[in-house]
């Protein structure tokens, strides 16, 4: 089956090459042609830029020095004005954002030419992919593991890995914190967000839109539901860890407001390299 699809795609690609040769109108959508698109994730903290090592104080009265902020983006879908969807091939639709390593861009290749008004994507790994394990061709596990986005004591992916040190109103000495968001066999914490694009993203054979998305880490703990690190200290009181239970369900809900699209660049070339 896979072979057939690939073959079909190859024929399509070949056909589209012919088609494009005598197409000189950039803005018209030529049926059956494809282009690239990119999503750029601009990570920030409640309006401030995210700088590793910098300290941010939230409305919970806690100050967080952030050392790591990595997450998984998946199952990207582009939506046209009439509501029809271009679904990026699921097998290739898992991506890692790693702030410290400046891995902030998701490249989409071979997207159907079109005018897109909305985007939808997942935060983390959906249950279907979990249960299929590593069936997908792309060996996503290795990439996720290299970016500290896997769990190994239980088997699965960390959707968000958010770590650093914090001080609270109650104490003065900074203590390490770890927020590891993910699903477990009791709760499915995978969520999808749909975002409006302020301007149309035009995908053409020689036009690559770049969708600039702002990510606000602050909402994870200081969103609709407030989560205090101070309330999640280990038995010895030396560090805070959030890796399970109700916290993950609350963080999943908070994360629905983590992303907004700031602007869209249309035209040729990459915009955020």
């Amino acid at each position: 089956m896979k072979f057939q699809i690939k073959y079909f795609a190859a024929v399509l690609a070949a056909v589209s090459l012919f088609v494009s040769c005598n197409n000189d109108d950039d803005s018209a959508i030529v049926e059956g042609t494809h282009g690239d698109a990119e999503l750029f994730f601009d990570n920030g903290v409640a309006g401030d830029a995210l700088i590793i090592g910098n300290t941010y104080t939230n409305s919970n009265g806690e100050s967080l020095t952030i050392n790591r902020f990595n997450y998984i983006i998946s199952n990207v879908v582009l939506i046209r004005e009439d509501g029809t969807e271009y679904i990026y091939p699921k097998e290739e639709s898992y991506f890692v954002i790693n702030h410290a390593d400046e891995l902030q861009t998701v490249h989409l290749e071979g997207v159907a030419a079109g005018d897109y008004k909305k985007i939808r994507f997942g935060i983390g790994v959906d249950q279907q992919r979990y249960l299929q394990g590593e069936t997908a061709q792309q060996s996503f596990w290795d990439l996720a593991a290299a970016n500290d986005l896997t769990w190994t004591w239980s088997t699965g992916y960390r959707f968000i890995n958010f770590e650093g040190a914090f001080t609270s109103t109650a104490g003065t000495e900074a203590k390490p914190f770890q927020v590891h968001q993910g699903s477990n066999t009791a709760t499915d914490n995978y969520r999808e967000v749909t975002l409006d694009l302020p301007t149309t993203a035009r995908v053409r054979e020689n036009e690559q839109p770049s969708i600039h998305i702002k990510t606000d880490i602050n909402v994870l703990l200081d969103g609709d539901t407030k989560i205090l690190l101070q309330n999640n200290l280990n038995g010895a009181g030396t560090a805070a860890a959030i890796m399970g239970g109700q916290n993950l369900i609350d963080i999943a809900a908070n994360s629905l407001k983590m992303f907004t699209v700031d602007h869209v660049h249309n035209g040729a070339g990459s915009h955020h390299e």
Partner: peptide
């Protein structure tokens, strides 16, 4: 404890466990 619910993923747990095999898939 139900650390896994997938026959395909479950081997990750013993492989990485520091007191069992202490390896990585890579």
């Amino acid at each position: 404890d139900g650390a896994s619910n997938s026959i395909e993923m479950l081997s990750i747990a013993p492989i990485h466990n520091p007191v069992e095999m202490n390896e990585t898939l890579e």
